[in-house]
């Protein structure tokens, strides 16, 4: 759906040139929800704005749905933009128009015949669940309701691609969840490709299929959300993930345990599990099959999109051979085992 090659964007200011994006390559598949995460100033906002040419690239190509966006003339670009919806952190609704007329706005731009446009607006308000607010002005709406209007507006001209520029960053966690759920629903119902940028790993975790991590104008890591969560390979990814996933018991607590069982062999391990294995009684099977004791020190389970994902910190106590065998057993069941001490 989107093919970005060698995209570079330099902002020229009187005092210096600022490199906002440096040789970015990215490819987003049709129908997926793709997230771009980065700290503020990393370049993610520039990147998403290049896709509909709100920002003109300095170098590089961007192909959206088979069309090289940068080579279009003004008129062609306007037509292409009608097929790329966009939602914003600050909603950007027109305060001079009612909810109904705000959703009507892109249809006016596309010069859709009025009866058809009216019917389309009704459908869209229904889709985002805000039909009862049709005659109300945006100033009377809550943040979540405003973003629903923003989404309805972005979908008006039947886009194949939706760009989300920090759409949930101004919302509270509860509202964020409901807006993300709406995005997930329309992604499935309308077969819509969604590209979203955020600084919040929770957003990525809840809706994205794939994610790109951007740091200092460069993409440093791209992959399935689940594999980046379970195995982040760059410090930037690690710090984003550590901000929301607690893998271990507090360190002070763990240090008090080391060397406690001096009469028996013991080993502190971290077990990570993803997907189906999270639902199975693997630990109790291990205890039954191998002569070990397992002391559960810390556990945590979470969901990444729809896949369960968790960590367990265990102290395995027994013969050294039995402990080694039980670790092998865990690995054979598809768990990742890491020895802490």
């Amino acid at each position: 759906m989107i093919e970005i090659n060698n995209l570079t964007k330099i902002f020229h200011t009187p005092h210096q040139d600022i490199m906002a994006l440096e040789e970015v390559d990215l490819s987003v598949n049709r129908g997926e929800i793709f997230g771009i995460i980065g700290l503020s100033g990393a370049g993610k906002s520039t990147l998403i704005r290049c896709i509909n040419m709100l920002e003109k690239p300095t170098r590089g190509t961007i192909v959206v749905d088979g069309q090289d966006i940068n080579s279009l003339n003004q008129r062609e670009l306007r037509l292409a933009r009608q097929k790329i919806g966009m939602i914003f952190q600050q909603f950007n609704l027109l305060s001079s128009r009612t909810v109904f007329d705000n959703v009507m706005f892109p249809l006016e731009i596309a010069q859709t015949p009025l009866p058809q446009a009216r019917q389309r607006v009704e459908e869209l308000l229904e889709l985002v669940g805000i039909t009862d607010k049709a005659r109300v002005y945006p100033d009377q709406l809550s943040g979540g309701q405003k973003q629903r209007v923003g989404i309805a507006r972005a979908l008006a001209n039947d886009p194949k691609l939706l760009l989300s520029d920090e759409a949930t960053s101004a919302l509270d966690p509860e509202t964020t969840r409901s807006i993300l759920k709406l995005l997930k629903d329309i992604n499935q119902q309308l077969d819509l490709t969604i590209l979203l940028i955020t600084h919040d790993m929770n957003v990525i975790k809840q809706v994205c299929d794939r994610v790109a991590v951007i740091n200092e104008s460069r993409i440093v890591e791209v992959g399935d959300v689940i594999s980046i969560f379970s195995n982040p390979s760059t410090p930037t990814s690690q710090s984003f993930i550590n901000a929301i996933v607690h893998k271990d018991a507090p360190e002070e607590y763990i240090s008090t345990l080391i060397g406690k069982h001096q009469d028996r062999y013991s080993c502190l391990v971290r077990v990570s599990f993803i997907g189906a294995s999270a639902g199975q009684p693997v630990i109790s099977a291990m205890i039954k099959q191998h002569d070990v004791d397992a002391n559960i020190l810390y556990g945590n389970i979470d969901r990444v999109k729809d896949v369960p994902f968790g960590h367990l910190t265990l102290e395995l106590i027994g013969d050294q051979a039995a402990v080694d065998l039980s670790m092998g057993f865990l690995r054979s069941r598809g768990l990742e085992v890491e020895v802490i001490s």
């Binding site: 709100l54 933009r81 009608q82 914003f88 027109l94 305060s95 001079s96 128009r97 731009i109």
Partner: peptide, 26 residues
């Protein structure tokens, strides 16, 4: 707010539409 103009541009509005539908009414 510049965001409003940008939103209109992102929908494919031309300059005349931005002036008559965003700038003046707002």
């Amino acid at each position: 707010d510049w965001g409003l103009i940008e939103a209109a541009l992102s929908m494919g509005a031309n300059a005349w539409q931005v002036i008559t539908k965003v700038l003046l009414p707002e």
